[in-house]
Design a binder for these strands. Structure first.
Lengths: 211, 211
DNA sequence: CTAACGTTTGTCCATTCAGTAAAAATGCAC
DNA sequence: GTGCATTTTTACTGAATGGACAAACGTTAG
């Protein structure tokens, strides 16, 4: 089941070069979007000439496709870890934290993904309807069971997941806006801890003062 | 204080045509991003020739700039309405609902904005650092007062506002993903009501079961 | 009618950009 | 080394696109 199609059989050099190119492509695509990026930019960022780059990747599309495919797997990992058998609130808190850590550690991936969805997900709609939907369905079932058992408050599991995605990815996708509003002085290393504390609080207890 | 600079002194026809162009430009820019859109596309959508369009707008930049400027005002209106003097929870619930309604009624504007921020806000960073920051600072002060008075639970007002932005705009910006995950059968007219109910619940009470 | 003005169109140009072709250089097995 | 495969460079093509411009068209005031 592991990589069922074409074992590309690459030399060490090819693997390394492809890696370097993808790294550069991620940088460029995530800041300029697909149409806003040029092969020349990517080539420059990867430290090689455009035709040389095109020796390793057939086309611009090809690079983008490769990036997106690799991305989705990493992206869903935190959700996959959501575990039936442990304490619900701890599990959800853990999920939020892992997702926020991804936003912190992989902001370029997040923006690449956001760009793709914003444009209507032309290249990954099938993946969203298939793999993504299945996973979310599965985890939603888990959450529903928690609710039925009275272990978390009744709520819509799908929208819950959406809101976790939205709030955490906001810190990578809208980073510029966050920084502008918080002001560049207050915006040190502690900001992700602040966000984490806030989100944990919000999702667990909400705004209404607890009796 | 109304339109302090250059009264453009336009004929009725000019106003109408410019309106028609901006409408078309919004449609095109919001689906393809700035670089992904061509003047020809916009001209076609507006039902006129490219040179004709360029008679009304100096350049592609010009159209984009005009759209973005108009946008921010509308965009901040819901937050402006947040009122010191009324019940905090009602006020915040009202803000969430208004913001969600904007996401429903102006998805193209939302995506245009998201695109701009994603690319690093090259054209509106000053506005974010100025107008936006001031407004948020002002409203954050109100929220802090509510907290001090014990009328809402202690939390970070800035991150609270961010999370309201994130969750509501998610339904316009990531609409494709939301639809793909919910499945197209369950995805009828009621979805915005579902989202509204969920968010209200989340922000007010969180997930922990109330005693 | 006609001069003046605002509007529209057809045509053109320069640039950018994805992708190709083929030669040149490099590495590598023997 | 010699011959073969891989990699890199130089030079180019063709399409897309933003924008310029002048001529043509229409409308209206006198």
């Amino acid at each position: 089941m592991n990589a069922p199609l074409k074992p590309p059989k690459r030399t060490r050099i090819q693997t390394e070069k492809r890696e370097r190119i993808l790294e550069a492509a991620l940088e460029v695509f995530s800041t300029n979007g697909f149409r806003g990026s040029t092969i020349d930019q990517i080539a420059e960022a990867a430290g090689m000439s455009k035709p040389n780059l095109l020796y390793y990747f057939r086309s611009k599309e090809d690079m983008h496709q490769t990036l997106i495919s690799k991305l989705l797997d990493t992206w869903l990992e935190p959700l996959r870890e959501l575990d039936d058998s442990r304490d619900p609130l701890t599990e959800l808190r853990g999920y939020i934290r892992r997702k926020l850590e991804m936003a912190r550690d992989y902001p370029r991936e997040s923006r690449l993904f956001a760009n793709e969805i914003l444009q209507g997900a032309p290249r990954i709609l099938p993946l969203l309807e298939g793999e993504l939907k299945s996973l979310v369905d599965e985890k939603a079932r888990i959450i529903k069971n928690w609710i039925r058992a009275g272990r978390i408050a009744p709520t819509d599991p799908y929208h819950l997941i959406f809101s976790i995605w939205a709030t955490t990815q906001h810190y990578s996708d809208f980073d510029v806006q966050v920084r502008a509003v918080l002001g560049y002085d207050h915006y040190g290393e502690g900001r992700f801890e602040d966000a984490a504390r806030f989100l944990e609080n919000l999702f667990l207890d909400g705004l209404r003062p607890r009796g």
